[in-house]
């Protein structure tokens, strides 16, 4: 059973539409390939994370990873 979070879905959808609109503009304006690649990477990663969050399969967040790393280094208890 997957706990769906519909409002999260709506938010992800909203930002996907906004970024896709931007992307479409860039393609028409013939931005450099480098820009497009970076843009798509960020867009896709936030889309993936967003969908994962919305479907309740939350991956370990960067904050938690940093927390764990610092704990491993023994900086914080």
């Amino acid at each position: 059973m997957i706990a769906m979070n519909y409002s999260m879905f709506i938010v992800v959808l909203l930002f996907t539409i906004l970024t896709l609109y931007d992307l479409w503009r860039f393609v028409r304006k013939k931005e450099s390939v480098k820009v497009l690649i970076v843009f798509i990477i960020i867009m896709v990663s936030s889309l993936i994370i967003g969908v994962l969050l919305a479907t309740g399969r939350r991956p370990a967040s960067p904050s938690e990873l940093i927390d764990r790393l610092l704990k491993m280094m023994g900086v914080i208890k």
Partner: peptide
């Protein structure tokens, strides 16, 4: 747009 979108997702994720 994409950075803001990312940080919004991030804010819920963190």
């Amino acid at each position: 747009t994409c950075i803001v979108a990312f940080s919004v997702i991030l804010s819920i994720w963190v």
